[in-house]
């Protein structure tokens, strides 16, 4: 009788111990979020946990971040597996190439070629700018500006007047 009671106590407490050893999903979620919060690049990620399976979502800034957050989540106690649904943000476009363009002989030739068919316009190169002078129609003014922009050449067109 006494032995049976003792056995029951052992079984019950063992069960309780076992249950308390297994982290709850909410606890896992909190632990994963805490682990991820150490890295600011992972701030855009989201965490869902069901039966110990972590599903990562949201946006990562790069592939390293995506692989990294999966590794961190997998290393948290109680996590059985990780489903990585993070998306990687596309890289920002490069800055405009015209920022660092300087006028050289090739650029000067490009501009001169571009003006070849537009009569009555002259160009001089002063510093980093093409300085244009002459009389132009509205259509040709547009063409000139487009040509200069395509060649990435800064310009001073204050000397261009409208053809009457």
């Amino acid at each position: 009788m006494k032995l049976t009671k003792l056995l029951m106590v052992v079984v019950v407490s063992a069960t309780m111990l076992f249950v308390s050893c297994k982290p709850k999903d909410a606890d896992i979620k909190a632990a994963v979020e805490k682990a991820l919060s150490a890295d600011p690049s992972m701030s855009g990620t989201t965490v869902e946990v069901k039966d110990g399976v972590v599903t990562m979502g949201g946006e990562c800034k790069d592939d390293a971040c995506k692989a990294g957050c999966e590794k961190i989540a997998a290393g948290v106690k109680g996590v059985k597996s990780v489903v990585n649904n993070c998306t990687v943000a596309p890289p920002p476009p490069p800055p405009p190439a015209s920022l660092s363009t300087t006028i050289d002989a090739t650029k000067m030739q490009q501009v001169k070629d571009g003006l070849k068919d537009i009569a009555g316009v002259t160009v001089e190169f002063v510093g980093d700018k093409a300085v244009l002078k002459g009389e132009v129609t509205q259509a040709n003014r547009m063409k000139i500006m487009q040509m200069l922009a395509a060649a990435k050449v800064l310009s001073d067109v204050s000397g261009l007047t409208d053809k009457k």
Partner: peptide, 18 residues
């Protein structure tokens, strides 16, 4: 561009769009 900056004369925009 031509509407915002009449005659595109200010020289303050480099619109390198292809």
């Amino acid at each position: 561009y031509a509407k915002i900056d009449p005659n595109m004369a200010s020289g303050d925009l480099m619109m390198n769009i292809d």
